[in-house]
Write a protein that binds this DNA or RNA. Structure first.
Lengths: 108, 108
DNA sequence: CGCTAACGTTAGCATCTACTGACAGAATGC
DNA sequence: GCATTCTGTCAGTAGATGCTAACGTTAGCG
């Protein structure tokens, strides 16, 4: 499978990451342009520490990827991860249908 | 517009609602079958109070709809809301592209 | 009206979380 | 080597959140 970790765990991690407005803003910032941590932090009025922690959460959720270049760390959004999340949202219904079908099967 | 409240607010509300595992489970429960609050609560090992609060959060986010029938309250998932959320996730990139285009425009 | 069933609401509590400030580490320039 | 730049990590704190228990509310029945 393509899942090193259980699917719902990763989906949950992404949703928790996206639940925070500032993290959504960061994700939008690195959606098309790869940016360094400092550049990202400069866009907001919170400490670099806070932004760094947000970047860690986003990275662990799989929503962004990190690349090192000298002392800098460049971040970019991983659109594949978002597509996986969107598919998982569809799965709310397909899974439910699967369970409904299973119930029908039991009644036979 | 189709948005009584700002788009990002509603998207944020949905993401915050979905960030909680139990709320995702509840949403799956009412994805295909309309269910009463008591039925839903019976599926989990937490108090009905807790489930009621989760239902409130889901309802305020727009992810589920409520229908009253006697003393009972029936809930069902609103797939349109999920589709709106999925579209908003795509918007992370299209918005970024819009801003990129605007910057190009400024440089002229 | 009294009684019951099905819910929501409030208060209070334990835990999580986003934040700041101080410190630590790795790569580059002098 | 030493200083500088860019960044992550740790400790501590104020506020948000999910939970339980007790109380309020509405609809139906005798």
């Amino acid at each position: 499978m393509t899942s090193p970790a259980p699917l719902d765990d990763r989906v949950g991690a992404m949703l928790r990451a996206l639940a925070e407005p500032r993290r959504r803003a960061i994700l939008r910032l690195v959606a098309t342009t790869e940016r360094a941590a400092g550049e990202i932090a400069a866009e907001f009025e919170v400490s670099r520490t806070a932004v760094s922690q947000h970047l860690t959460v986003l990275k662990e959720s799989g929503l962004i990827a990190e690349r090192r270049e000298g002392t800098r760390r460049l971040y970019r959004a991983r659109r594949e991860a978002v597509r996986e999340l969107q598919a998982a949202l569809d799965g709310i219904w397909s899974d439910a249908l699967d369970r409904a079908r299973a119930l029908v099967e039991e009644e036979k």
